[in-house]
């Protein structure tokens, strides 16, 4: 029990030092938003091309999700590690000591891993949620319905992200929700127009 409390305290200390939760929150929304819009692109591409084999949609969709996940994980890890190393080196020069093996150094390393995980998992999960209807194909009368349900889920996910942003900013939840949904609606509309 005491070790669990110690662990929570360490996490809180690390968070205070590195502001991880704030950065992770930003990455989460930004990348989940990216993930949903990308998967909208994949869905619309398949829809306007007349793909009626759900397996193809699932394969292309999941491949996109995995690529986005790896891209987020890798990119964020390398960027975050480089930035934090630079900050720590600068701070070490000020104190004239090596801070890499102190609490500050450990907190920076933990923050890098957490931020990378959030950055990788958020687009992957958000995009996977949108693809869910294709796994329950039997419940739909036609493949077109699955596409529309998936697109509906994409807009719903975007609305959810908007609500989250509204909650963080303590602003108008619905307004934020509408703002994020509009981005998805524009992506769908343009794809429709381009696809003829």
């Amino acid at each position: 029990m005491s070790s669990f409390r110690d662990m929570l305290r360490a996490i809180r200390d690390y968070d205070n030092l590195t502001k991880t939760s704030e950065i992770a929150r930003r990455y989460f929304v930004m990348n989940a938003f990216d993930g949903v819009l990308t998967i909208i692109g994949v869905l619309m591409g398949n829809l306007v091309a007349g793909v009626d084999d759900p397996q193809i949609v699932i394969s292309t969709g999941m491949a996109t999700c995995i690529a986005m996940g790896i891209s987020g994980l890798w990119g964020a890890y390398l960027t975050e590690a480089a930035e934090r190393k630079r900050d720590l080196d600068q701070l070490s020069r000020h104190t004239l000591t090596d801070l890499h093996d102190t609490r500050i150094g450990r907190a920076a390393r933990v923050a890098t891993v957490i931020v990378a995980l959030v950055d990788g998992l958020s687009p992957f999960l958000a995009a996977s949620v949108v693809l869910l209807p294709f796994f329950a194909l039997g419940s739909f009368p036609a493949i077109t319905w699955v596409y529309y349900t998936s697109l509906g889920m994409a807009l719903l996910t975007l609305f959810g992200l908007g609500l989250f942003l509204g909650y963080i900013s303590r602003g108008n939840l619905i307004l934020y929700g509408v703002k994020t949904v509009v981005a998805g609606a524009i992506a769908i509309a343009i794809s429709f127009l381009l696809g003829g």
Binding site: N16, T95, I104
Partner: peptide
């Protein structure tokens, strides 16, 4: 002593 701003003196 010389210390970074964080951790704060409250924590220290």
């Amino acid at each position: 002593t010389l210390k970074p701003h964080e951790p704060s003196i409250i924590e220290m």
